[in-house]
């Protein structure tokens, strides 16, 4: 096990040491500090709280919020809600995959983008919609989607 991560997690989980019921709180704290929860950190949380590793994994894989791999510099959230679905979110997803080489839940090899699917961004009138970081992009088509992603990448982010 990576000693630095173990040490870091031990520090972060100190308030929850020996308290299995605080598992979700502890995982939140670790993720907000490390950006994600790598397997070494999962093992360290299990040890610190006295929770079986299998149950730590159960919680992490159940809640979409928890991530086990690093996030990219830009987080792209593609809306998969009803309006966007009807207006062709699948075509936008295909464009994203063509441009970035990753689909939902993936992070590009260069660490630039993480792609996530969300249920609704509350901008149905602009469907199909995606958000990149805090910016909303509406009335997308595949061509425009690719152009936006290229601009963000070339902008250096």
């Amino acid at each position: 096990m990576n000693p630095t991560i173990e040490h870091q997690v031990a520090e972060l989980t100190r308030p929850y040491a020996g308290a299995p019921s605080e598992l979700i709180q502890a995982l939140h704290r670790v993720q907000s500090e490390l950006g994600h929860i790598p397997v070494e950190a999962q093992a360290a949380v299990a040890k610190a709280l006295g929770v079986p590793p299998s149950q730590v994994r159960g919680v992490i894989t159940f809640y979409h919020f928890f991530r086990t791999t690093p996030v990219g510099r830009h987080t792209l959230r593609l809306c998969l809600g009803t309006a966007c679905h009807v207006r062709g979110a699948d075509l936008i997803l295909r464009a994203i995959r063509e441009e970035l080489g990753v689909g939902l839940g993936g992070t590009t090899a260069d660490g630039m983008f993480t792609v996530e699917g969300v249920r609704c961004l509350g901008a149905c009138g602009l469907a199909p919609v995606m958000m990149v970081n805090q910016e909303v992009y509406g009335k997308l088509d595949p061509k425009r989607t690719k152009r936006i992603l290229r601009q963000i990448r070339e902008g250096g982010g």
Binding site: P52, S54, R57, T61, F62
Partner: peptide
């Protein structure tokens, strides 16, 4: 406690 449910 070896086994657990992973995913949903």
């Amino acid at each position: 406690f070896t086994w657990g449910f992973a995913g949903r």
